[in-house]
Design a protein around this nucleic acid. Structure first.
Lengths: 345, 345
DNA sequence: GTGAAAGCGCTAACAC
DNA sequence: GTGTTAGCGCTTTCAC
């Protein structure tokens, strides 16, 4: 249809410039150690022929691809609904682009996709992978590990073995949760509930742990005040409804993330509870489009999501020792959180 | 650090199975024309060695990659905020996966990214591209065109030249808009406003045109009733505020998409207008998480977004003549829309 | 049906 | 500095 004409090869460029293939190659790859007049001639030949290097051929010998895979093990709907991913991806994207690496996003929705992704990674398309949103029972890390491709995880991986060797970037979920709950307690609230995220993810489990830390210390623990949910607004609504039925006297809610808090606020409004007078609410993440535009504006635990993405990419590129040799292998990073006070607590 | 051990090659598999590299290759690629016992031996060798074909080497000779790029020329924030993209991507993902093609998502945020994407496409990483969300002045199609990579566009491209030769999938934006406005008129509304999308995209321009078609026919055209916006909730709020200031007597709003309608509803609520009693509202897209959960539930023009995605992928795969030869080159498809009545109109 | 051999387009030693 | 040459790992004629 279109590509009948095969693209020019380096050979053609060399011939046109009247140099050897090797020299042409050198120029194409930066031109170090080639005298000016030749550089110029090759450049012109490239231009005139519209030459673009064949990456397959190049990768075959260099074993480099200058491409990094981002693997998100979550149904598209969630990825594209939670601004969290968008922000992190933006951080990654910026960092990779700055180092001339292409971002390749791999989506996995079902189990079948796992094998395909593993094959893609192992098949040598990319130099490394950034992997997100793993659940405790996820087979993906095992598959990826077997692929021999360097990996940095987004969020602390939850599986027991090898978890120590895995490099990851995360925020201080537990500490952030503690801050939130302490703040609520400081407001004089005594029946502080927590609506959790999916507990097979460490972020959700850690936040729950932080909540418990404080509640236990206060001697106010009550299992009835903890309702499981799933990081979505719909889940938040559902959980809040249940919570209100169960404990109508609740006077504060720490929601596992901002989206959940959105659902919480909605139900509180429907049920005629004033926020924060009757019930104070705190979220987690501080994704601005959500927190600033919610009614009332949401008090939340802020993590620097974009920075986390940037950091993940940087760590991975470092471990590919694209940087100075002799550098220590990178280790995991846990970023601090800060409480951002707005109107809900 | 990790990949010290080089992966086994086909050579190794062949040796272990006691066959030639050619035979091993045949088995790996389906095993046609190889006798059973040999097939078995090779399969076992593959298994034992954990052999995975090197894609770079394979692509170098086959000139195939079994990978399709999806290019979205929009800042990540919008991509990941509008469920529209999620749905379309899901349709694409399903279709590609069903045909054993890997989806590679390329994000472009700024002008700089264009060249990088063009290079990526031209460099031979993928067999084709699905391109989205083009604006009238976008340089990307030109760059992509020059890459020789087959392309299917999402949404009718807007540039004048060559637009006829481009293959695209779209819905009947103009017809859908007409239906919406006619419905509002049928409700007895006479001051029907339109809040547009970004008019440098054909979808937004076509919807505006459909609106005008009906308003002109009714003899109720009034430039004051048209406010430009950008397909976002914030934009919708802003536009609606302006509209109310300008024309407090407005009794119906056709919003260019559901997200915009969300902003519209919010402002109407704030300003104490009842929906639909005082002002009827219709959106466009029917992205369920938005339309069903809005208050009140949004009446909207439905397009089958996921199907459009699936169709785009199918068209592209067809044009790569992965199908039967002698097939006609695929042509563009425009899908019908349907009005979905809920509570707002 | 199977194997031997050529070559996809490129980079990287190694000579000169 | 520049050119020559040997592969990278694979598929694919073409003999056998």
């Amino acid at each position: 249809m279109s590509e009948a004409v095969s693209r020019p090869t380096l050979e053609a460029v060399a011939a046109r410039a009247g140099v050897s293939r090797a020299t042409a190659s050198r120029v194409v790859n930066g031109g170090d150690g080639v005298r000016e007049p030749l550089v110029e001639r090759v450049r012109r030949a490239v231009e005139e022929l519209g030459y673009v290097p064949n990456q397959a051929a190049r990768s075959l010998v260099t074993r480099r691809h200058d491409a990094i895979a981002v693997v998100i093990a979550e149904p598209e709907t969630r990825i594209f609904t939670d601004p969290f991913f968008a922000l992190q991806l933006r951080g990654i994207s910026k960092e990779l682009t700055a180092h001339d690496n292409q971002l390749v996003l791999l989506l996995t929705e079902g189990r079948d996709d796992h094998a395909r992704v593993a094959r893609y990674l192992t098949g040598g398309h990319v130099d490394g992978a950034l992997v997100f949103s793993l659940h405790l029972d996820d087979p993906l890390p095992g598959l990826i590990d077997g692929s021999g491709v360097p990996v940095v995880f987004g969020g602390r991986p939850g599986w027991s073995d090898g978890g120590d060797s895995a490099v990851y970037v995360d925020c201080d979920n537990r500490g952030g949760a503690r801050d939130a709950v302490r703040h609520l307690a400081g407001l004089g609230r005594t029946r502080i509930a927590h609506i959790t995220g999916p507990l097979d993810q460490t972020s959700a489990a850690d936040r729950l742990q932080g909540y418990r830390d404080v509640m236990d210390a206060l001697g106010e623990s009550d299992p009835q005040l903890v309702v499981a949910s799933d990081f979505t607004p719909a889940g938040g609504e559902h959980a809040m409804g249940e919570l209100l039925d169960r404990r109508p006297d609740v006077d504060a809610v720490f929601a596992a993330n901002d989206l959940t808090a959105l659902g919480v606020l909605r139900v509180l409004r429907e049920r005629g509870r004033r926020v924060p007078e009757d019930v104070a609410v705190i979220g987690f993440d501080d994704v601005l489009p959500v927190t600033e535009r919610s009614e009332p504006a949401l008090t939340t635990v802020r993590q620097d999501i974009e920075e986390m993405g940037r950091l993940m990419a940087r760590l991975l590129l470092t471990s590919l020792n694209r940087t100075a040799p002799g550098t220590d292998p990178p280790s995991s990073v846990v970023l601090p959180t800060t409480l951002v006070r707005r109107a809900t607590a």
